[in-house]
Design a protein around this nucleic acid. Structure first.
Lengths: 207, 207
DNA sequence: CAAAAAAATAGTACGTTGTACTATATTGTG
DNA sequence: CACAATATAGTACAACGTACTATTTTTTTG
């Protein structure tokens, strides 16, 4: 048995039933090992959550960095967001049970987590500035802070909303729906060039 | 001991520590009754949650209805939203622990809850149409469905975002912040009359 | 290769949780 | 007063997270 196998199975179960509904004994049974053996790899259930969140987070930061290597267009921004959404979808089981995440934060590693959020806000700030400089967005006054706030909330809770009613939402349909909403929001701040870029994205990538 | 007293104390504790972190024994102790007596009023912990959600929901629908009796202006819409936000803030302890809500939904009263969401969407649809007719908003194409989707997600998860990092967010500050974001969003679809109405609201009511 | 050390696995047990059940006390009612 | 209804308390049980110990397997080392 490896940690990797345990995390994989955990994620599947968390996605299926939710973090709170998956017990350590059940997880051990699914892995065909004893509960005692499971605690050898992860002393606490919360440690499984933390490890998965770490995986998720590192994959996410990787995705953000890819935007540095592409042309700063609205279409590429939407592509970036969609890949991030796909990642969130993959980890929805650990992402949604947020009061456990909250508890973990307040008790253990608050600072690290808050740091991630601040970094993400900065990243969005940079991205919107880039899109402005490339002539895709026209931003004035508090437009940037508004868009950053929008992305922070929308980009975090779309998956929660989606799973709140559809126990097993279809990945493509759901993501497509929320990406379209984002595209609309973006269009409200777009130049003509930006609008064309959005339309191009929706034609090629939007289902 | 009355149900009312139990619900009041529950809400305080849920707001302070979160639904999952408050046990039935602790709740009984705080009420100076025995655990057995507590289960006489609420057989299951989930029943306490349900009762509180019912209170919250009925208060909310009441608030929505008040909009029928006022002039359909952007300012009044923002006032309505703020009173709704205040209600959500008051019940944040039951509102945030959403995977328990989710569990309750999937197991028991899915339909009822889904119905509430649909009704709320219709209500927003009506409100935006009213604001259009009164010359405060100019809406075309998929603007209405976009705004409805925006209000649904934003109006549901702002409090979750707020409490995720500030364990005890100050009511006024937090609500004011999110209302300002909504005002900005609204202004993107506003006529001149609508913009003036928003500015008037922010001057009078925005802190 | 054999012995020692390390890593992995299993089993048991403890405290806490939600909650079902029963017994006792209080209140209301004819 | 007597009896029913309501309210309160106490106990107990299954499930949970998890700490602890014992056993087996694997790796390292002389």
């Amino acid at each position: 048995m490896t940690e990797k196998q345990i995390l994989e199975k955990s994620l599947v179960l968390f996605n299926q039933k939710g973090y709170a509904q998956v017990g350590m004994r059940e997880l051990a049974r699914e892995l065909s090992i004893s509960p005692g053996n499971l605690t050898y790899y992860f002393k606490k259930k919360e440690d499984v959550l933390s490890a998965l969140l770490k995986q998720f987070s590192s994959h996410n930061t990787q995705l953000y960095q890819t935007f540095q290597n592409v042309k700063p267009t609205n279409a590429n921004f939407l592509r970036l967001t969609r890949s991030i959404f796909e990642n969130q979808y993959a980890y929805r089981g650990v992402y949604i049970g947020n009061q456990f995440v909250q508890k973990a934060i307040t008790e253990n590693n608050l600072f690290e987590y808050e740091e991630v959020v601040i970094r993400r806000k900065d990243a969005y700030s940079d991205i919107f500035r880039l899109l402005e400089n490339s002539g895709h967005l026209k931003l004035k006054g508090d437009d940037v802070s508004f868009l950053v706030a929008y992305m922070t909330l929308f980009g975090r809770f779309w998956i929660t909303e989606a799973t709140l009613f559809n126990k097993v939402p279809k990945s493509d349909e759901v993501i497509s729906h929320y990406i379209h909403l984002l595209a609309k929001q973006l269009s409200l701040f777009s130049t003509n060039v930006g609008l064309i870029s959005i339309e191009e994205f929706l034609k090629v990538d939007g289902s």
